[in-house]
């Protein structure tokens, strides 16, 4: 990690976590690895923030948590999208895409003649 990692905007982390869970139920550590590998090191997410995001979504009813057994046979808390969560994936993803497009437009824009 030579370059300074980018800070993530609030809410962005939720989108990433939802995206991760849209592949199927996984425990917190797996979500962390998923995001870490997916970003390819462009940005890093503090694992603590990730757990906070997961728990908040659990409170909001977007994900359900259940204790299960990990691939290595240990007790782990698994998260799974609920119906509301799946709906959230769609709207949040759309929102994120709009946001990215808007930022891109601004980046390409020229100042209008005064």
């Amino acid at each position: 990690m030579t370059t300074q990692p980018l800070d993530l905007l609030q809410g962005t982390l939720d989108v990433l976590v939802l995206r991760a869970l849209s592949w199927g139920p996984m425990h917190g550590y797996a979500v962390a690895r998923f995001i870490h590998q997916g970003s390819d090191g462009t940005f890093t997410v503090l694992d603590g923030a990730l757990y906070t995001s997961l728990h908040r979504m659990e409170e909001r009813g977007w994900v359900d948590a259940e204790w299960g057994t990990s691939e290595k046979g240990k007790r782990a808390k698994f998260y799974r999208l609920t119906t509301a969560g799946r709906r959230a994936v769609r709207t949040e993803t759309d929102g994120w895409n709009d946001y990215v497009a808007a930022v891109a437009r601004v980046m390409k824009a020229m100042p209008a003649p005064a």
Binding site: G28, Y29, D47, S70, K74
Partner: peptide, 10 residues
């Protein structure tokens, strides 16, 4: 429990 699992795995 959950955090312990995280750290052990990492």
């Amino acid at each position: 429990d959950e955090l312990r699992f995280h750290f052990e795995s990492r």
